[in-house]
Amino acid sequence: MCTTPSHGVPAGLHCAREDILDQLGTRIVRTWLRDTWGVWSCDDHSIVIASGFSAVQEGCVLAQGLEHVWAGDIDCGNQIRSIRQERRADLAAVRKLIAISDLAEVAQWASGIPTAAAELHATERLFEVRINDLRREG
């Protein structure tokens, strides 16, 4: 059972991801990472997350990591395959994180990407992934 406070994330979302990952036997490891936000490690079935993130940042990393778990992604050492896995995980996660109806509502009043992303409990990068997805720009 998740007891992590939401810190601005809608109540069940953060905990639901952690609970789902736990049920799937996936460990969440929080540690210092030099140049990435998170890593899916299929070898030990864990998601490693950079420590010190906000709940929104961590939630986005967990959502993307969960998509790797569900897809059965492996670290293949093949750069093209890895890029495709990352892109697919990003798209699958962001489509669940940001509903089109919510995006349309926020777009009516938000002054820019930072405001819209914050309102939708997403990182700016994933917000831009969602916008590009809707534009079909990839």
Rank of each mutant, 00 (worst) to 15 (best):
M1Q: 12
M1D: 10
C2H: 11
S6C: 11
P10L: 15
P10W: 14
L13T: 12
H14G: 00
R17Q: 12
E18V: 14
Q23A: 13
G25S: 13
G25A: 09
R27D: 15
R27W: 05
R27I: 03
I28N: 03
V29G: 01
V29W: 00
W32M: 09
L33D: 10
R34N: 14
T36P: 02
W37G: 03
W40N: 01
S41N: 04
D44A: 06
S46I: 09
I47E: 10
I47N: 05
V48Q: 09
V48P: 05
V48K: 09
I49W: 00
A50I: 06
F53D: 09
A55F: 03
Q57E: 12
V61R: 06
A63T: 11
Q64V: 12
E67I: 07
E67C: 15
H68W: 03
V69N: 00
W70P: 00
A71I: 08
I74Y: 09
C76L: 12
C76G: 14
N78K: 02
N78G: 04
Q79C: 11
Q79R: 12
S82Q: 01
S82R: 04
R84N: 15
R84F: 07
R88E: 13
R88K: 07
D90E: 07
A92W: 05
A92Y: 01
A93P: 03
V94H: 07
I100P: 01
D102Q: 08
L103H: 14
L103Y: 11
A104I: 15
Q108T: 12
W109Y: 11
A110G: 11
P114W: 09
P114Y: 07
T115A: 13
A116V: 00
A118T: 07
E119F: 01
A122V: 08
R130L: 00
N132K: 10
L134H: 06
L134I: 07
R136G: 15
E137V: 14
G138Q: 06
